Simulated scan of single mutants.
Amino acid sequence: MVELAETGPATYRRSFAGDTFNAAWYARRALPEGWDVAYATCIGTDAVSDEMAAFMAGEGIATDTLRRIPERGVGLYMIALKDGERSFAYWRGQSAARLLADDPDWLDAVLGGAAHVHVSGITLAILAPEARRRLIDALARARTAGVTVSLDTNIRPRLWENEESCRAALTACAEASDLLLPSFDEEAVLFGDATPEATLSRYRQAGARVVVVKNGAAQILGWSDPAGEVRVDAVPDTAVVDTTAAGDSFAGAFLAAHLTGADLGAAITRAARVAAGVVGAHGALVR
């Protein structure tokens, strides 16, 4: 999406961002040479879509997995900040990304060509219910073929038609995923989890092999099979400027560490440090 981030009174900086793209960007920065990162989505054929694709390529992210849709464009969002916490205004009714799962052959091709695929709850939320089901089914097929799948639940209630649909889709996608990255505060509201341990247990029961439960400035709870449970202290938030992309940067840094062989505790620690740096600056992509 096009991001407008406030830099002063009535002044904004334009850039490109979005939760899964942010994760890909941070993963690309953390991964060593020889690892390829690609972004699979739909964009338009207009000038802004061209500029977005060029930006991705310039950041080292492959764009041969983009699908172009005429008469559609890209979404836009504006960040508003109050005491470091962000809120968003969105314009994306005609976003091409909403048609991500409308071409099953393309979807199977891009997912099946990956070693690892990362999706989020926002990915699911912006799709029509039938398209949402197609995406989850395609993820399950890719996983059966040997692709590993991660899901950042990233729950945004305003994007969903209702809570029941949100719970059902996240549960179904969790069952098609190997690695889960939930945030306890969001899970507690939607699923009624009383503790981070309850969130971890629920996703373990869904079949996840790795679960990392983020909990703001509190301790991070992780579990993997067969290593078991670990607890990692979050990096203190000494100067929170903008929490945009805190979870996305955590996801990208964690996946880079995990996929290159770091043990669970080390991967969580690296991710927490990256996220702590991100919230100390404006915008989603902090260099």
Rank of each mutant, 00 (worst) to 15 (best):
E85I: 13
I126K: 01
A131M: 04
L100G: 05
D108C: 14
D178C: 04
A174H: 03
L135P: 03
L124F: 01
I136P: 00
C166M: 12
P129C: 01
P104R: 05
H118Q: 04
E130A: 15
D137E: 14
S150A: 04
R167S: 02
R158D: 10
S120M: 07
L127E: 00
A198N: 12
L181G: 00
I155A: 02
A169H: 04
L135K: 00
D108V: 15
A168S: 10
S165K: 07
I126S: 00
V189M: 11
V117L: 04
R134K: 12
N162M: 03
S95F: 02
D193Y: 13
R92M: 03
L107I: 04
E186Q: 11
E197K: 12
C166S: 10
A142M: 15
V119H: 08
S177L: 03
L170D: 01
L127P: 01
E85P: 10
T153I: 03
F88R: 09
D185A: 11
A176W: 02
G112V: 09
I155G: 00
S150E: 02
Y90D: 00
L111P: 10
V147D: 10
S177A: 12
C173G: 07
L159Q: 03
E186I: 12
P182D: 04
P129S: 03
A176M: 04
S201W: 13
E163G: 08
I155Y: 01
A194H: 15
F191S: 09
D105G: 14
A145E: 13
G112H: 11
G113N: 12
L200T: 02
A109P: 11
L180H: 00
S177D: 05
